[in-house]
């Protein structure tokens, strides 16, 4: 019984994901004014040829800051999970 509910949920999700693709047009993005600005003026304003790097490090630098912070936090959390309280081979979670 539970399996059928899950399958029904999956089918509903598939339909919900497939219906919006009908309104999209591959190869012809709907709203491009911001990206056109980046392509036209990004090279002159920042000097970098790679527009993706310009967007990542300059125009949307806060995104990269948050991203780097997420990576730092993940490493800290993994280190906390595997931390060793004492010098011998005993782990804290055992």
């Amino acid at each position: 019984m539970k399996q059928y509910i899950k399958a029904a949920v999956l089918l509903v999700l598939l339909a919900a994901f497939l219906v919006p693709t009908l309104s999209l047009d591959f190869g012809n993005p709907a709203e491009t004014s911001l990206d056109d600005y980046f392509i036209r003026y990004g090279q002159e304003q920042t000097g970098g040829n790679n527009i993706v790097a310009d967007v990542l490090m300059d125009f949307r630098g806060f995104d990269t800051l948050g991203e780097a912070t997420v990576l730092l936090t993940a490493v800290l959390a993994v280190g906390l999970v595997f931390r060793r309280l004492h010098k011998e081979e005993e782990y804290e979670y055992e």
Binding site: L34, I39, V52, D63, V70, L71, A74, A77, V78
Partner: peptide, 26 residues
């Protein structure tokens, strides 16, 4: 040229995906 902003978003998503996957595997 293709749109650059979504590619930057994809790069952000990849890094965050690595972080969450490493945490969940731990």
């Amino acid at each position: 040229m293709v749109l650059p902003t979504v590619q930057a978003m994809t790069l952000t998503n990849i890094v965050i995906g690595i972080a969450t996957t490493a945490l969940l595997l731990s």
